[in-house]
C-alpha cells in the first residue's frame, strides 16, 4: 500500500515539474490521436452523411457492416495493419512499421467506423425532419448534404470527441504497429503497460492521471456542447 502512495507522490512531482520524458510521451500521444481523428473525421463525416441521404442497393447491408465495425477489437486492427505494413505485406515498401504514421493508420482504421456510423445516424434523423422542406426550397445533392451536416454540427462534434476518446485510450493496436519504442513510438497507454509490467509505478501513475484528465476534459466538452447546442433539429 505504501508503495502505491509513494507512486502517487512521485507521479505528482513528475507532473508538477513538467518532466520532459513524461511530456514527450503525452505530446506524441496527442499528436498521433489528434491526427488520426482529424483524418477520420474528414473521411467519416461526409461518408456517414452520404450514406444517410443516399438510397442504393445494398445500403442496409453497408449500414450493418459499418455498425459492426464500430466494435472492432483493437488488437485485430493492429494485426491487420501490421500484416499490411510488414515487409511481407502489400505496403511493406513504405517502411512505415514501428513509426508514428503506422500508429495513426491503425487508429484511423479503428475510429473511422465509429464516426461513419454515428454521423450516419445523426444525419439520417435530421434528414427525416428536413427532407421535404429542403426539397421544397430546391436543395438537393451536395448542397443538401452540407446543410444537414451544418444543422447537426453539435452532435457531430460530440461524435468526433467520442472517437478521440477511443483513439487516445487505445493500446492493443498501437503497441503492435508502433512497437512501444522509447522516444519514437511510445505513447501514454503503451508506456503505462510497460512501466506497470516493470514495477515502475510512478511514471505509469503519472501517465494514468494525465490520461484520466484528458478523458475527463473530452467528456466535459461533449457535455458542454450538448448543453449549448439546440435540443432538437428543426422543429
Amino acid at each position: 500500500m505504501e508503495e502505491i502512495f509513494e507512486g502517487f507522490a512521485t507521479a505528482a512531482v513528475l507532473i508538477a515539474r513538467f518532466d520532459s520524458a513524461l511530456f514527450e510521451i503525452v505530446e506524441l500521444s496527442l499528436r498521433v490521436s489528434l491526427t488520426a481523428v482529424l483524418i477520420s473525421a474528414v473521411i467519416g463525416l461526409p461518408l456517414g452523411a452520404a450514406i444517410a441521404v443516399a438510397r442504393f442497393r445494398g445500403r442496409n447491408f453497408l449500414i450493418v457492416c459499418v455498425n459492426a465495425l464500430m466494435g472492432l477489437p483493437p488488437v485485430v486492427v493492429g494485426l491487420l495493419v501490421y500484416l499490411n505494413l510488414s515487409n511481407a505485406g502489400p505496403f511493406g515498401w513504405l517502411q512505415l512499421l514501428y513509426t508514428p504514421t503506422a500508429m495513426i493508420i491503425a487508429q484511423i482504421v479503428l475510429v473511422t467506423p465509429i464516426i461513419v456510423a454515428l454521423a450516419r445516424q445523426f444525419v439520417e434523423d435530421a434528414n427525416a425532419d428536413y427532407d421535404e422542406e429542403l426539397r421544397s426550397i430546391g436543395v438537393r445533392g451536395a448542397a443538401k448534404l452540407i446543410t444537414l451536416i451544418v444543422e447537426v454540427r453539435h452532435s457531430l462534434l460530440t461524435v468526433v470527441l467520442a472517437a478521440f476518446g477511443r483513439a487516445i485510450a487505445e493500446v492493443g493496436a498501437v503497441i503492435i504497429v508502433g512497437g512501444n519504442i522509447n522516444h519514437i513510438t511510445r505513447v501514454m497507454t503503451t508506456a503505462i503497460a510497460l512501466e506497470t509490467s516493470k514495477g515502475e509505478l510512478a511514471l505509469a501513475l503519472a501517465l494514468g492521471v494525465i490520461l484520466m484528465m484528458i478523458a475527463f476534459a473530452v467528456n466535459a466538452m461533449a457535455s458542454l456542447i450538448k448543453k449549448i447546442g439546440p435540443k432538437s433539429y428543426g422543429r
Partner: peptide, 26 residues
Amino acid sequence: QSMVFQSPVLLRRSIEANIRYALTKR
C-alpha cells in the same frame, strides 16, 4: 411554387438567415 408545412422545419440560425437561405438556394 413554394410550400408551408403543418409543422415547419426551420434551420438552426436566425429568422433573417432562414429567409436568406431559401432566397440564396433559389
